[in-house]
Structure formats: C-alpha cells, structure tokens
Nucleic acid binder design. Sequence first.
DNA 1: TCGCTATCTTGACGACGTCAAGATTGATTT
DNA 2: AAATCAATCTTGACGTCGTCAAGATAGCGA
Lengths: 239, 239
Amino acid sequence: MTKIEAGSARGGYHHGDLRQAMITAAEAVLAEKGLAGFTLRECARRAGVSPAAPAHHFGNLTGLLTAIATLGFDGLSDAMEAAAEVAACRANGNRLAAICDAYLATALDKPGRFRVVFGQMGLNWEEPAFKRAAGRAFGILVRETRCELGRESGDDLLARHPPSFAGEPDLAAILFVWSVTHGFTTLLIDGQLDFLAEEGGREVLLGLYSRQLVAILIAALRTLDLPPPEALANPRGDG
Amino acid sequence: MTKIEAGSARGGYHHGDLRQAMITAAEAVLAEKGLAGFTLRECARRAGVSPAAPAHHFGNLTGLLTAIATLGFDGLSDAMEAAAEVAACRANGNRLAAICDAYLATALDKPGRFRVVFGQMGLNWEEPAFKRAAGRAFGILVRETRCELGRESGDDLLARHPPSFAGEPDLAAILFVWSVTHGFTTLLIDGQLDFLAEEGGREVLLGLYSRQLVAILIAALRTLDLPPPEALANPRGDG
DNA sequence: TCGCTATCTTGACGACGTCAAGATTGATTT
DNA sequence: AAATCAATCTTGACGTCGTCAAGATAGCGA
C-alpha cells in the first residue's frame, strides 16, 4: 500500500504539502494498479486526507491527471535529451535512434503514467505548465528529426505564434518518426503484440524494435531525402 | 437519445434479442458520447431493459466491450479488404497504401469503437470470436505487407500453432507498417495533433498522412528491400 | 399440461466523483 | 499580542456506476 504517513509534513488538520503528496500517491497507484485502478479517493486515502481535500489543489480529477501528464511529458523530454546526449558522444551513435529508444523505454518504465499522457482520460490542455511540457517534448522531436535530415536548426517551429506548421516541409518526416515510435510503443504497452511473444517474452519485441524498426526508420529518412515535397508527391498514383 | 422502443422485438417481459439490442445501443452511445460517456446502465436503458439484464448475455461490462471490439476488428478487416480490392483495380494503385488509408478512415469514422478495440479497457482475449476477428485483421496486414515486399504468400503465419513469429524475417516490416499506421491514427484520434491543425483543420493532417506519410512508408519498404536481416543488423553502431 | 430453464426485474451493496457547509489553522493586519 | 481573514481540510450527502442475490416471468420441450 505504501501509505504515506497520515497527515504528514505537519501532523494535524492541515497537511502542509498535499499537492506533492497527492502526486506521489498518484504515481504509486499508477505503478501498482495501473490506470484502470486509478482513483481520486484512493490517492487521497494514501495521502491521509479526505476525498474532498484534493479539490483545492487540482480542482477535480482532470486536474490531478493533468499534473501527472505534465510529469510524464517532462520525464519523456528528460529521457530523450539524455539519450541523445549519450548517443552523440558515441562513435556511430545516432541521436534520433536514441530518442526513439528512450521513448519506448520511458513508456515501459512507467506504463500507467504514459497512458495518462496519451490516453483518452481528457486532460486540461489549457494548463500552462502542461502545455509547456508538451511543447518541450515535441520540440525535441522536431529538432532531432531536422538534425537527422541535415537541416540547419533555423527557426524554432514551436516559437511561432500561433504555431502553424502548415507549410513546414519537414512536418511529414517529423510525424513519420513520431508515428512509428508512438505506434509501436502503444501497441506494445497495451498488449496488442502479446500474442507474438508467447515464448520469447517482450525482450524479443524490444530487440526487434530497437535493432530493426528504428533502423528502418533512420534508413528511410536518409535514403529518401524527402524534400522538396514535390519529389514525393503522389508516387502511389491513386490520388 | 435514440431510445430503442422499450421491450422491442417481443413486447413483454422477455426482450427477444437483447444481445443485438445492447450492441446497437452501445454503438449509439459510443457515437454520441464517446468512450468516456460509455456506461453499461446507459446501454441497458436504451435497450429498454434493467441494468442487470445484460449480464446473462455478456457476463459483465468487459463482455460487452469485447463484443464491440469484435465488431471493431471485423469492420477494420472489411474496410481494409475493400480498400485493397479497389486499389488493385486501379492503375498504379497500391494495396498496402490503401490499407493504411482504410485503417485511419475506419478509426475516424467510429472513434469510440476504435478506442474500445485499442484502448486500455481490458477486453477478454480468450473470447474465441474476438480472437478470430483480431487474427483476421492482423492476417490481412501480414498478407499485404508481404505482397508489397514481393514475397510469395507461402505459409500463413497465423495458421501456426502456437503462432510463433520469432524467426519470421518480415515481422519487422509488418510491425513497421502497423506502427506507422496505428501511431498516426492514435495520435490524431486522441487529439495529440490538434495543436498542429488550428487553422487548416484535420483535412490538412489527413492529406499529409495519405499523401506523404504513407508514401514514405511504401517507398521505404521498396527501396530498403529488407531481408536478409543481416543487411540491417546494427547500422546504427550503438549496440 | 406440466415443469424446466433461460431470461429479466427488483432491491441492495460498496465505490466512485463532486458539492455545500462547517471546522481548523497559518498568516496578515491592527 | 489580539483580531481578522483566507486558505485548507473534514463531514455528510447526492447521484451514478458495476455487480450480485433473490424472485418473477415466459418460452419450450417432455
């Protein structure tokens, strides 16, 4: 249960730092029971507080989930930055590949938190801290994808107000990278690939992802050398 | 509300075809309120039946969701088969690209149903009908990916008992296709890309997916010409 | 016609998120 | 130092949820 000592911080009526205690409890619940068993009342119980107390700090359940999701985006950003840094120091290391690996690793490390971020629980996208965290994570993806494509790190896409990516030539590549990474991660996390790994466990799939899928992704970005987008326009002929 | 006429089929105490009525009601609820507002009681209400009635047909909420998910997989399979058929008849049509488009289109057409299939609601994977439907959908993906790769449609991967894909050389390509498609679909459905489409709406992103992302995917499969897997082994040099 | 069994209702249980009203306390002001 | 105030937390309640046990109903075969 990992019950936080009841009424911690300051022994009595007032908790002292309930906001942090709630977040800690929430992460513990997510780690133990996953998103399915996640409950506001349970988190309040672990924080040693009545069910109505968190309302003053988070408004409602959505507020708490948004706070968790903010942590999730920040954790994702930190992991990606660290992985890119390590890869950059290694000979033949690839920053973008490292980021893709870090994305999956982060999700596997804290699946519940990942599901809060990218699930369908309805977060508060107007929360400034949350918006900032999400923008940072996406910004890393944008930067590293363009770096891999050999682009100069000219204008920061996220700095535009409003962020209009309509004419951005690299947007397709960026979303391609994100789609592969997020798609595989989601499929694996949600158990959709379990029927493939009955004997070998998840290690086989992890290796497949890290060694083959990401390799295909990187190779595709390199060999195709996408823009100008006219070169890609309708090679399928069914439009 | 689209309330089904109370106690339909046969006017009285017994409904007559409650199972189908519940599924119909469930799909209506999903279409109107989405997965968030989905409730067993609400479905029973629309079917004109008490909250405990569905238990005899579905066991519990998971059973109803599994039935919906089975429909979801079947709808996905039907859409992919039809799209592939159409693409095959067109000059320069690409079956795999058509399948990727159909995947996204199906999800956009019935987002609630899609979220039941691929969400984290906990389905009953032991249900034979559900397993069969899921296997059919995955089989289509396998078949079309191998077709695109120029493989002979030799052994049916899904026919193996148990289905061991460990040594399957095309598995990476198959999962790559699924990851791209599922990843973009999930990101779009769950609103993660909304901040990109403030002015252009979703049409811009749809066009980007259909014309560029899928094109990159197909081109990658063609140019890379993956196996033997040794050719791909560790081109990143960080393993 | 008589049961038998599947089907559906009723009533209840505990758990959930949330709200209104009241209690408590730390901080600010006088 | 005393008084005041705003923030914080509790209590109790409301409606809704999924699920269960027990009883009512009705289609169906013997």
